[in-house]
């Protein structure tokens, strides 16, 4: 869909909303980003700001560039044009370790070394805080224990990671990312492959970390209803562009979902959380 057709179908919502004048400060932002792989440009021109202390969730259809955006924010891909800024300075100008003390990532593609124990894996999150001469400190110990308790894997410390269930394993990875103790944490589809109960459990954990530990979380999620329920700041993308941005209660409308996903739907208030709830109309029921 071209931008012209987009604006014909719907007025582009929130594009003009001066969200950057909100009181929230912004440590991490991308400016004039062009993202892609070689000749394949995925995001032609993108500006993004992550409000400090927010639980920002990026949603959008497959291939809209949401993972690409997330990867560019944590240096995994270099923008073809534009810059990512951390605390007002280009992120690529910092030493790798300095960034790693501020910005963590839970990637989709992490592999646990065969036979590694839960404790050893979580401990590896301390890498950016250690050096050859200072390999293990009491502070590392506290961070690892705290992370394992927060994720409920302390009892599994001695177990081998590959013996665990999918839900437990994902919690161990989250513990590892938490042990890194970064104020900013990026999560690339953290709930994929988990059943609904484990998804909710994990999202509740993220919300807790966001509210009570003051961490800024930036997640890519597939489930729009989960995003509406847990996000404090929603970024909706389509074809490499941000089409809506703001608190879910403000930006999630039937029109917006239609525009972003091409999905006819109703938007109602979630009876439990009072956040927007998206109900697809589907074809069968429309008749």
């Amino acid at each position: 869909m071209t931008p012209a057709r987009l604006s014909l179908a719907q007025p582009v919502p929130d594009e003009a909303t001066p969200y950057h004048t909100e009181p929230a400060t912004v440590r991490l932002r991308g400016q004039h980003l062009r993202l892609g792989y070689g000749d394949r440009v995925i995001c032609p021109q993108l500006d993004v700001r992550i409000p400090d202390g927010s639980f920002t969730v990026i949603v959008g259809p497959n291939g809209c560039g949401k993972s690409t955006l997330l990867r560019s924010l944590c240096r995994l891909i270099t923008p073809q044009a534009g810059q990512v800024y951390l605390d007002g300075k280009q992120i690529r100008d910092y030493p790798a370790r300095t960034v790693a003390q501020q910005l963590g990532l839970l990637p989709q593609s992490a592999t646990a070394p065969d036979g590694i124990s839960v404790l050893d894996l979580v401990s590896r999150g301390r890498y950016p805080h250690q050096s050859l001469l200072r390999q293990w400190s009491p502070q590392d110990e506290i961070a690892v224990q705290t992370a394992m308790q927060a994720t409920g894997v302390a009892d599994l410390a001695g177990r081998a990671v590959d013996e665990l269930s999918g839900g437990q394993r994902q919690r161990v990875w989250v513990a590892m990312a938490l042990a890194q103790e970064t104020p900013l944490l990026l999560l690339d589809e953290p709930t994929t492959y988990l059943d609904i109960a484990h998804q909710i459990e994990l999202l509740e954990l993220f919300r807790h970390l966001n509210r009570h530990n003051g961490r800024t979380l930036i997640a890519v999620l597939h489930d729009l209803n989960h995003a509406c329920r847990y996000a404090t700041h929603l970024i909706a993308m389509r074809e490499g562009r941000i089409v809506a941005e703001g608190a879910p209660g403000k930006v999630v409308t039937a029109d917006m979902v239609q525009q972003v996903f091409g999905l006819p739907c109703l938007v109602m208030a979630d009876p439990v959380s009072h956040t927007p709830m998206v109900i697809p109309r589907g074809k069968v029921h429309m008749a």
Partner: peptide, 13 residues
């Protein structure tokens, strides 16, 4: 050993 993505995010090159 945990994958290149995680290696980068943990501050290694």
């Amino acid at each position: 050993g945990m994958g290149e993505d995680l290696a980068v995010s943990l501050g290694s090159r």
